[in-house]
Design a binder for these strands. Sequence first.
DNA 1: CGCGCCTTTGACAGCGCTCAATAGGTGTGG
DNA 2: CCACACCTATTGAGCGCTGTCAAAGGCGCG
Lengths: 240, 240
Amino acid sequence: MQTVRKDIHNSEVPVLCQSCEARHQGICGALSAEQLVTLSKQSRRVHRSEGEELLGDAMPITGYANVLRGVVKLTKVLEDGRQQVVGLQFAPDLLGRPFAQESRVSVETASDVDLCMIPKPALEAMMRDSGALEHRVMMQALRELDEARDWMVTLGRKTAGEKVASFLYLIATHIDPSEDEAITTFDLPLSRADIADFLGLTIETVSRQISKLKADKVIEIANYRHVTVRDLAQLRLRCG
Amino acid sequence: MQTVRKDIHNSEVPVLCQSCEARHQGICGALSAEQLVTLSKQSRRVHRSEGEELLGDAMPITGYANVLRGVVKLTKVLEDGRQQVVGLQFAPDLLGRPFAQESRVSVETASDVDLCMIPKPALEAMMRDSGALEHRVMMQALRELDEARDWMVTLGRKTAGEKVASFLYLIATHIDPSEDEAITTFDLPLSRADIADFLGLTIETVSRQISKLKADKVIEIANYRHVTVRDLAQLRLRCG
DNA sequence: CGCGCCTTTGACAGCGCTCAATAGGTGTGG
DNA sequence: CCACACCTATTGAGCGCTGTCAAAGGCGCG
């Protein structure tokens, strides 16, 4: 006769969560089946198309959301309109600045995305109950801090060529959360304008640098968006 | 007869901690007198002079430290020597990337500093016991993340003049943790080289922009380091 | 097929970097 | 007390990278 461990028995895991990535690598991995049921009752999956604003800067935060598929960008804008992308969120990241009353960034979809929306009180109550959950949220915040600091070096000290190479390398290593290694062919989840705002450049400079990488046979590009990395080592080298 | 609340009765607070800023605004504010005693037994106050390296990049982390006075800079270096300051820590910030095995930044004193060193196992054990402590550490990490993202806008989208104004404004509002408002006269805690590495500029450009602010009567400078802000509104305006 | 949007490419200008010389402040020794 | 050295900061000249402005090319969609 087979032993059944309660916490992984699928009949106790909400249908919504059964094939969900956030339950493994994401924050829901810190929850028991029981907690998962409680949380899933208040959550709902939604789809958002490319270019939608999920939350504006200085808007009150009403909830959190797990990214299940796609890419979400966090941006800040200066008064005169200059824009900077300050973060990219991939599955299974949690969206939403924990414990903040209002957003300090604008949150927009960079591609089509699937989200699992969680009301703010629901997740925060569960964080108070479960140290393990709060710990996992903290670990994500710390990882985001590491990534932000890595990117500050790129923004402050790299040339345009190095910035574009760094961006392509980042996407190659982050686009598919299930892969540990970099993948060498993928669709860019960002427009040239978004890439420029992420790198602190203009679209023209981004375009020129991409063309140079193409001319140097480091990458190939079809239909503006579909990238094949022909020489990953060379791309890595050009990151500075 | 006076009521004595145990948790604030000074005779129970370790001597080391009695006049310590970290006990109020810093992470130690989350601790009971009893926990404070436990932690203080394993901690020690130390002084470090300007320009000392506290921890190298990729070095194993042996402990945490509260900044009690002075400024500490976190830097990253590219292989060819280009350097970027990715964070500044003022009192009563906690130094040390929580739960990391090794450092991802180089930690150096930017000025003379006083620190309260805490062994890694001691603080982490107490975080496991005290959700309130872990929560406070998390809140600091989230604040640092907010600050890093603010700075990404400065690095990616501001002109040299705006960068220097932003730096001076940051120092005016952060140098003295006891002041809520910006203070208008202070000593720069960073050399021109450090400022340049923080702003992603060269020392020459930093110098030129400071001279311009001086010529425009926005600030005055004595002895290279002592700054008086003559027109704070104008300085704010020039931050972009 | 024609229109609109995104991207690419080109010409030119300007901001910030590089290289170099000068100025100012600090510390030491005569 | 001053002369000198050393270090940091300032100032200047020239150039190159990246931004600006403009036009053309490519893809999707009606």
